[in-house]
Amino acid sequence: MRRNHRRLEVWQDSIGLVEEIYRATRCFPSSETYGLSGQMRRAAVSVPSNIAEVFARDGTRELLRFLGIAAGSLSELDTLIELARRLGFLNNTTELEKQLDEVSGKLMGLQASLRRRLDA
């Protein structure tokens, strides 16, 4: 199996974001195990999973589709972090938001690069 996705900074950074989400949600109330905590974890895991899946596919359009799914998961995660903050489950979200922005920027850069290749 080729695992080229592991060399991508965006994949590596998104794995780091998943780790931070898991750490942050450990302190959530047990009543949130299948609620907000679980949803945040699923959205976070979806990002590197979809990036990895991209590299098992052929064709630029297919790549862009999975990167779009990853971007959607990042937007969902952003909303869930905000909800967790407003509900008092997370006090300081600055570091999580910074990581989210870094992953989002790199993902958008990869998408733009692939779109240029598609248009060429």
Rank of each mutant, 00 (worst) to 15 (best):
residue 75 S to E: 11
residue 18 V to I: 09
residue 70 A to F: 06
residue 32 E to C: 12
residue 31 S to E: 14
residue 88 G to L: 05
residue 118 L to Y: 09
residue 33 T to D: 07
residue 47 V to K: 08
residue 26 R to T: 09
residue 69 I to A: 08
residue 54 V to K: 03
residue 7 R to C: 08
residue 85 R to E: 00
residue 108 M to N: 12
residue 29 P to T: 10
residue 89 F to N: 03
residue 21 I to C: 03
residue 60 T to L: 08
residue 72 G to I: 02
residue 60 T to P: 01
residue 92 N to D: 14
residue 62 E to F: 06
residue 102 E to G: 06
residue 86 R to I: 02
residue 4 N to A: 14
residue 79 T to E: 09
residue 23 R to M: 05
residue 68 G to Q: 10
residue 25 T to R: 02
residue 63 L to E: 11
residue 16 G to I: 01
residue 24 A to I: 01
residue 30 S to V: 14
residue 43 A to W: 03
residue 59 G to N: 12
residue 19 E to I: 13
residue 42 R to N: 07
residue 74 L to E: 00
residue 10 V to E: 00
residue 8 L to H: 04
residue 49 S to G: 12
residue 100 L to I: 00
residue 60 T to V: 14
residue 15 I to N: 06
residue 95 E to N: 06
residue 29 P to H: 04
residue 30 S to C: 04
residue 17 L to M: 05
residue 22 Y to L: 15
residue 91 N to R: 15
residue 48 P to W: 00
residue 14 S to N: 10
residue 5 H to K: 11
residue 23 R to T: 10
residue 55 F to L: 15
residue 27 C to E: 13
residue 21 I to Y: 03
residue 7 R to L: 15
residue 47 V to H: 07
residue 24 A to E: 01
residue 104 S to T: 15
residue 49 S to K: 05
residue 14 S to C: 09
residue 98 K to E: 05
residue 60 T to M: 03
residue 12 Q to R: 15
residue 61 R to C: 04
residue 94 T to Q: 13
residue 54 V to Y: 02
residue 107 L to K: 04
residue 80 L to V: 01
residue 81 I to C: 09
residue 84 A to T: 06
residue 57 R to D: 08
residue 107 L to F: 01
residue 32 E to K: 06
residue 116 R to M: 09
residue 101 D to Y: 05
residue 53 E to D: 12
residue 84 A to P: 11
residue 41 R to A: 05
residue 94 T to A: 14
residue 19 E to G: 14
residue 101 D to E: 13
residue 67 L to P: 02
residue 55 F to E: 13
residue 48 P to T: 01
residue 29 P to N: 06
residue 66 F to P: 02
residue 90 L to S: 03
residue 104 S to E: 11
residue 33 T to Y: 09
residue 72 G to F: 02
residue 70 A to H: 10
residue 73 S to P: 01
residue 102 E to I: 14
residue 53 E to P: 03
residue 49 S to H: 05
residue 28 F to Q: 08
residue 15 I to M: 15
